[in-house]
């Protein structure tokens, strides 16, 4: 059984349907990417998985538990941490307080110290700035904090929404290196990215999403050879 499995998922906002009949799975320990042009529904897909947006039709199971219809705060308790688009830090809270909020759930709170040590080790720059307001960090540091905050909940699946967005090219490379390290620690990752070439080097498998439908899926190495990569780049 897959860790995460979506079958025939349809979802949207009001009268607008953003996802049609989506099928997707993520195995334990796997890193999977969803790529596609702007407005394809990539962010919507992650919002549906983390429970911010309700599933209209279809099933969503995580480790055997049916999550469709569960609110976001219950989904986190099952072990899914969502690093949302735009990072969504608490800007007036300090770096340390943001991380503390990542460990809000009782199960995570019990391991608070230990998780914190791991995040400090992974992102030493955050330890240096722990008393600083999150809003005053640079873009790259903010993204590290957003990922660190997600790790604090001790998740079994991490959803990353456009981690490279708004970052300088040098920072993008460093960030992908950090995500690779997180992968190596055994975390399961589902990542949505515009930076297709980079992300395909990082993951095992990838899905191509276009206008709300899965158009293609396959091993990352194979897909990188196909012309859909070019298509996704150009944004047809």
């Amino acid at each position: 059984m897959s860790l995460l499995e979506l079958t025939s998922v349809t979802a949207g906002y009001g009268h607008f349907t953003a996802l049609w009949d989506v099928a997707l799975r993520v195995e334990r320990g796997e890193a999977v990417a969803v790529v596609g042009p702007n407005g394809a529904g990539k962010t919507t897909l992650l919002r549906v998985i983390s429970g911010i947006l309700p599933v209209r039709a279809g099933t969503l199971t995580f480790d055997g538990a049916a999550l469709a219809g569960r609110p976001a705060h219950e989904v986190v308790a099952h072990g899914i941490a969502h690093v949302p688009e735009g990072r969504r830090l608490f800007p007036a809270l300090s770096v340390a307080e943001n991380l503390k909020m990542g460990a809000y759930l009782p199960a995570a709170r019990a391991h608070y110290r230990e998780s914190l040590e791991r995040v400090w080790a992974l992102f030493p720059v955050l330890a240096e700035r722990k008393a600083q307001r999150a809003g005053s960090l640079s873009g790259g540091e903010q993204q590290m904090l957003a990922i660190g905050r997600a790790l604090m909940s001790r998740p079994r699946l991490i959803l990353l929404d456009e981690p490279s967005m708004g970052l300088a090219p040098v920072m993008v490379l460093r960030l992908f290196e950090l995500i690779r390290r997180i992968r190596a620690e055994g975390y399961t990752i589902l990542v949505v990215e515009q930076n297709v070439r980079q992300v395909l080097k990082l993951v095992d498998r990838a899905y191509l999403l276009e206008v709300g439908r899965i158009k293609m899926e396959g091993r990352a190495a194979e897909l990188a050879e196909q012309d859909f990569v070019r298509k996704a780049y150009v944004g047809l």
């Binding site: 609110p71 976001a72 986190v76 949302p84 969504r88 990542g102 809000y104 759930l105």
Partner: peptide, 10 residues
């Protein structure tokens, strides 16, 4: 500061 982000924290 961010209601939705806090629900993502559980």
């Amino acid at each position: 500061q961010d209601r939705e982000a806090m629900s993502l924290m559980g």
